[in-house]
Design a protein around this nucleic acid. Structure first.
Length: 639
RNA sequence: GCCGGAAUAGCUCAGAUGGUAGAGCAACUGACUUGUAAUCAGUAGGUCACGGGUUCGACUCCUGUUUCCGGCACCA
């Protein structure tokens, strides 16, 4: 049997050797680090025997795939431990995930946080017992027979496509249906921790049964595990809910209403800068701003189709004088009516309407998360009405507008998502030709602009495909920051037309453009990505003045304050009778970018001693110089 | 919405087994008159989320509700 190594070397082995044997034949240190292998494109367990020639690539601990294999095996170890402690337990799926693993468990009794420690101990025992994780290929019939009393596994077996191999893994008494890719021996699993307990629907189906899910994480060394646990702690410190409270950005109060955020002065100061930014950037890009009411006729939303698709996520309708109103969840229909308010010529297009407006959505109570998901949100929403020949250019210019904002805000986009329809789902409107056209145009733009993206079938809006800009929150949630959506349907539904060069009435195409998410969501992202230390242009308070003595230095301090305020900056004076060290500490805690100390010296030579957030350095500069520095920091949108 | 957990002073948190609550910070008052990350002393602050029950007695046990947290589902 001939195996070829990545460096091109070839070596003969006796049939039935395992990746572990191959590693051992090379070196004992490699044997310690190996966790599996690829034979051509097939992932082999560490202890799976090899019976054919092929290209072999050993997967070692440093390999990205190794973490996945280890965590997948850890999920099995978890299930084995649960089965030992709770013999009646049945299991759903137990995959490796980005930072660890989970396993879904069906159990009569509810697991509690304190049970995790016991399960963890049992896992350690099974690991120590060093069970080989033995792979077996079986027929569908055999598999169904083996799991005949297990609703979950039989359902999973039935979902395996015909022709795919069905494999089982046995470790000790524990037998599981599994595609595989395992570390081969439970003793390989040494540094792990169970993290949390949650509910999860079987196969993600909210009409199906709910299982108990245990999350955990598994690493190759104690150091790596500890580092990961420390990272989880650090993330808690960056949670926008915590920072938002500390820095008095916003509050959520049950008496105000569930999911209804209140912006506090510090938060609104930031938001106002963002609103102005958005307005200016849109104005420069040729958008026309409009304003329409937060309440709309229900009929308007029936015409658009939103009522059909989303009424469950809208606040219930209100009736007055025979007319039915809804709290608007969207802007599209309103902008459609604006387009329709005049006879349009092909020469008028593109027409870009933008609006900063508050919308209301009845989000499921369990979905509400700080400012990340709320029920009343303010955003700038835009709809661009174009001729077919203008689609590409407008999609590109929308992309560029968004791209600039992301850079200006210093944000990190995780990836772009290209959401298309899935014909098996009913939510999408029917016209296939339009869909194909729309999807082709968007993909063209992505390909031509060489923008990397992830295609996600079935995630499109009901009226058309879209490009979503995804951000990863500190909690690990993927949320949509910006979006560009093509829409051939709403113009149809609203019977929008313009007169083309031949004097005929034809349909415009609509591009929906979500710019920088809602101000609520943007604030949550900004807080997390800046850790609450806003760049100068955004900071709620940009400069704080710290007089050394309230008696001796207050006049000069107040003069400075007045001139800074007049110049448009957000400034405060710390007028408390406290020591300078105390005031500095307080200003640092509030993450105020500039702290100006005003004492005898500064009064005498008309200067300020500036200290920046996060630094213990101080520079005494003339007032003029400080103004320059401040203006530059604002212009550069830097810290 | 579903599964699980939590709710104690403005904030962060203590408070076995039932005997109506405590710290630090913040606030307030006073002293200190201050030059780069917390000066000292004192005062005040609580329907222990809310309602019902068990009990001689409930922050503590049971139950309902509300909100929040971890997930799942949802996300125009």
């Amino acid at each position: 049997m001939l195996l070829r190594f990545p460096d091109g070397a070839e070596k003969t082995f006796t049939e039935g050797i395992t990746p572990l044997d191959v590693a051992k034949s090379i070196s004992s240190s490699l044997a310690k680090k190996v966790v599996g292998a690829y034979l051509d494109d097939d992932l082999y367990d560490l202890n799976r025997t090899i019976h054919r020639d092929g290209a072999i690539r050993l997967v070692t601990e440093s390999d990205e795939k190794a973490f996945e294999i280890l965590n997948h095996s850890s999920a099995h170890l978890l299930a084995q431990a649960v089965k030992t402690l709770y013999p009646n337990a049945q299991f759903g799926v137990g995959p490796a995930i980005e930072e660890g693993f989970y396993y879904d468990i069906a159990l009569e009794t509810s697991l509690r946080e304190e049970d995790l420690a016991h399960i963890e101990k049992q896992m350690a025992r099974h690991a120590k017992e060093n069970h080989p994780m033995v792979r077996k290929e079986v027929s569908r019939k055999e598999a169904l027979e083996i799991f005949k009393d297990d609703f979950y596994k039989t359902t999973l077996i039935e979902a395996i496509p015909d022709g795919d191999a069905i494999t089982l893994y046995q470790q000790g008494d524990f037998l599981d249906l599994c595609r595989g890719g395992h570390v081969g021996f439970t003793s390989k699993i040494k540094h792990f921790k169970l993290l949390s307990l949650a509910g999860a629907y079987f196969r993600g189906d909210s009409d199906g049964p709910m299982m108990q899910r245990i999350y955990g994480t598994s690493w190759f060394s104690k150091e790596a595990l500890d580092a990961h646990l420390a990272l989880l702690e650090e993330r808690k410190e960056r949670d926008h809910r915590k920072l938002g409270k500390q820095l008095k950005i916003f509050m959520l109060n049950s008496e105000v209403g569930q999911g209804l955020a209140t912006w506090l002065p510090n938060g609104y100061a930031v938001r106002k800068v963002l609103e102005d930014y958005v307005y200016e950037e849109e104005r420069k890009a040729g958008y026309l701003h409009v304003s329409t009411p937060v309440l709309g006729s229900k009929h308007l939303y029936e015409t658009s189709g939103h009522w059909d698709h989303y009424q469950a996520n809208m606040f219930p309708p209100m009736e007055r004088d025979g007319e039915t109103f809804v709290l608007r969840p969207m802007s599209c229909p309103h902008h459609m009516k604006i387009f329709q308010s005049e006879l349009r010529s092909y020469r008028d297009l593109p027409l870009r309407y933008a609006e900063i407006v508050t919308q209301h959505r009845y989000e499921a109570s369990g979905a509400l998360t700080g400012l990340e998901r709320v029920r009343a949100m303010t955003l700038t929403d835009a709809h661009i009405f174009v001729r077919p020949d203008q689609i590409k250019a407008e999609v590109i210019s929308a992309y560029e507008l968004i791209d600039k904002a992301i850079a200006d805000l210093g944000l990190e986009i995780a990836y772009l998502e290209f959401a298309t329809r899935d014909d098996s789902k009913e939510k999408f409107h029917a016209d296939e030709t339009l869909w194909n056209e729309a999807e082709a145009v968007l993909e063209d733009v992505l390909v031509e602009a060489k923008i990397p993206y992830k295609k996600v079938p079935g995630e499109a809006a009901f009226y058309g495909p879209k490009i979503d800009f995804q951000v990863k929150t500190v909690l690990g949630h993927m949320i949509t920051m910006s979006t560009i959506q093509l829409d051939f349907l709403l113009p149809e539904r609203f019977d929008l037309t313009y007169i083309n060069a031949d004097g005929e009435k034809v349909r415009p195409v609509v591009i929906h453009r979500g710019y920088i998410s809602t101000f609520e969501r943007l604030m949550s992202i900004l807080l997390e990505q800046t850790k609450g230390a806003f760049p100068v242009w955004l900071a709620p308070t940009q400069v704080i003045l710290l007089p050394v003595s309230l008696d001796a230095h207050m006049d000069y301090t107040k003069t400075l304050y007045k001139s800074l305020m007049e110049a448009g900056y957000r400034v405060k004076i710390d007028e408390r009778e406290e020591k300078l060290g105390y005031k500095i500490r307080d200003a640092q805690t509030q993450k105020i970018p500039y702290q100006l100390v005003i004492g005898d010296q500064e009064v005498a030579d008309h200067s300020v001693t500036a200290r920046q957030y996060g630094s213990s350095e101080q520079h005494t500069v003339s007032v003029e110089e400080f103004y320059d520095q401040l203006a530059q920091a604002v212009a550069k949108k830097s810290r």
